[in-house]
Amino acid sequence: MATLTQPKVEQKTLVRYRVEDGLGIVELDDPPANTYTHEMMRQLDDAILQARFDDTVHVIVLRGHGDKFFSAGANIAYLNSITPRYKYFFCLHANETLNRLEQTPKLTIAALNGHTVGGGLEIGMACDLRLAKESQNKIGLPEVNLGVLPGTGGTQRLARIVGKPRAIEMMVKGETFSFDRAKEIGLVHEVFPAEGFWEQVVLYAKQFCPPNKASKAVGLIKRAVQSGAEVPFESGLTLERELQQQLFQSDDAKEGIAAYVEKRVAEFQGR
């Protein structure tokens, strides 16, 4: 009988998490390609939950360690070492983790600081916004070349981002392409120059933090879209209404409306 005991892996820090100026920064750290295992997914899950519960975190930014890879996806050697049933639970947990990321009512940004392929792009697609570093790096879902499909939400999220026909074509061809091309098709939101890339990402992310933006409204807009788009239209409207009601009662809405009337810059607090 197959055992579900986790394969023995080195217990090390694979996901680094820190909070800086309202940003919860999550770094995938398993050189050389920041590929993920179940252990990394559990650490990622833990980081997402920390950021979710931390009131001082307004935006969550994911990045890869180093400057070559955001992530090349699942660790193939690791996948090769586990049973099919374990693989199934590994995928299930990865899906749950990325869903948690997607459903957290805080804006999430993937800083694609290097190659972003396979499961790496699947993590990126679970974020609300994707910012890429100008480079020769590649992005895509080439799982078909291994005889499998993008199984951490890739088939579903890619179709929702670029549309079914293009998504199918990209995935069945196993196509990888440049960030510039990704921007053309709406898979990436911005391509920033390589020099000062991280500084640009931080500046970009901080525009959504207090005092610049009402981060609670930002988070609930994200939540209304991410959750609302997956339910019938009427239910989506209901969700929208309920979230709006929360915002109507927020301190930031009071401040935002007062500042508008008084023609001054609002000082939001994220409450």
């Binding site: 640009q200 500046l203 970009y204 901080k206 525009q207 933006k213």
Partner: peptide, 9 residues
């Protein structure tokens, strides 16, 4: 120094 430093759209 750059547009990205501007805090509001």
């Amino acid at each position: 120094p750059s547009v990205m430093h501007i805090p509001d759209q």
